[in-house]
Each structure stands twice: as structure tokens, then as C-alpha cells.
């Protein structure tokens, strides 16, 4: 595969899935700057692996699979742990939410997103790829390299967990109103 074709495919992928990938990565790292960096890393790996890409899955599935791995790598990295610790300190110093954040908290959709962000990674993976990535069970199975039945089980548990998380969020909300 020549360089020109690779460049063209990269540009196409970035235009079509760039935003998706940033948003997907954000659910893992909760930092827009980092999410964009990870999306960029995803595209670089995609570019490097283009000669090996044989079209067994769609480009989207392939990209999402890389992105999930990139995010997991980042979360287990020394760099992330360093940033994470400094964020914890910053949060300790700023204990009060801004009015803007308070407003977001009241929003139901924001509560749902917060619940998704708080999910365990293995549940978050299947949930995001299936719902947000609009993949089929088989595509999720391919992207995560796990059996379809496992995808189904995790998806069920993720939804159930998310329901509990929402309820708890709701209770919190109710308490804050009372």
C-alpha cells in the first residue's frame, strides 16, 4: 500500500470517526485534551497497521477496537497515574462545585453519562461500543476480542449497573432538592 493511499484513508477516517473517537476516549479518561491525544494515537496506530488491515471488520469497528486498547494502555500507564494523583489533589483543594457544574448535575442525561463514566471498564467497553458506537453484538465481540455471549452478559450487567447508578443519582438529586 503506497503512502498516498494510506494518507487518503487516514484523512477519511479522521473526518468520519474523529469526533466519535474523541468522545469514546473521553468516557475513559474524562479529560478532553487527553481524549483528543488518545484519538490521535488511535489514528497513528491505524495508519501504521493499514497494510495489515484486511477488511475483516469495518473501519469503524477496527478503529474502535484500537481506541479501546489505546485507552486501556493509557489508564495503566505511569503518565496517567501521575496525572490522576495530581487531579485528586486539585479536587481536594476545590471541594465546591461551580454553579455551572451544579446545573449539569441536575440534568438527567448528564447523570446517565456520569453513570456510564463510572462503570467498570469491561462493562463500559461493551456498552459504549454497542450503544454509542452502534455496533452489532458480533462487531463488539470482534472489537474486544471476546465471545458474543460474554458481550451479551456484560451488556446486561452494564445496563443493570447503570440503572442502579441512575437510581442512586436520582436519590441524590431528590435529597439535594428537599
Amino acid at each position: 500500500m503506497d503512502e498516498q493511499t494510506k494518507d487518503s484513508l487516514l484523512t477519511e477516517a479522521m473526518n468520519e470517526y474523529g469526533d466519535y473517537l474523541v468522545q469514546l476516549c473521553y468516557t475513559y479518561v474524562r479529560n478532553w485534551q487527553t481524549a483528543e491525544d488518545l484519538a490521535q494515537e488511535t489514528f497513528i496506530r491505524y495508519y501504521n497497521n493499514l497494510p495489515k488491515f484486511r477488511g475483516e471488520a469495518s473501519v469503524k469497528t477496527y478503529l474502535f477496537r484500537i481506541a479501546v486498547n489505546v485507552c486501556k494502555d493509557y489508564l495503566s500507564s505511569w503518565k496517567y497515574k501521575k496525572v490522576h494523583i495530581s487531579e485528586i489533589f486539585q479536587k481536594l483543594l476545590k471541594s465546591e462545585d461551580t454553579p455551572e457544574k451544579q446545573a449539569i448535575k441536575h440534568d438527567e442525561q448528564a447523570q446517565l453519562v456520569k453513570g456510564i463514566e463510572g462503570l467498570q471498564t469491561k462493562y463500559k467497553d461493551v456498552l459504549l461500543l454497542f450503544h454509542f458506537g452502534e455496533m452489532t453484538l458480533e462487531e463488539v465481540s470482534f472489537a474486544l476480542n471476546i465471545p458474543v455471549n460474554t458481550v451479551k452478559t456484560r451488556l446486561r450487567r452494564a445496563r443493570r449497573t447503570l440503572g442502579i447508578a441512575l437510581e442512586e443519582g436520582g436519590e441524590d438529586h431528590a435529597r439535594s432538592n428537599s
Partner: peptide
């Protein structure tokens, strides 16, 4: 899909910027 809706709504500002696209091309 409510989950997709929620994420799309909450993350609507999450964009892969043009500057980043140019930077990505440079990097590869």
C-alpha cells in the same frame, strides 16, 4: 438510543480538531 443521545448531548463539544488532524498527519 437514550445512551447514544445522552453521550452525544453531553459530549457535543468533543471534537477532533482540524489542528489535531494536521498534527496527526505530521506525526505519521
Amino acid at each position: 438510543d437514550p445512551i447514544r443521545n445522552a453521550i452525544n448531548e453531553a459530549y457535543k463539544d468533543g471534537k477532533f480538531s482540524n489542528a489535531k488532524k494536521i498534527d496527526t498527519r505530521q506525526k505519521v
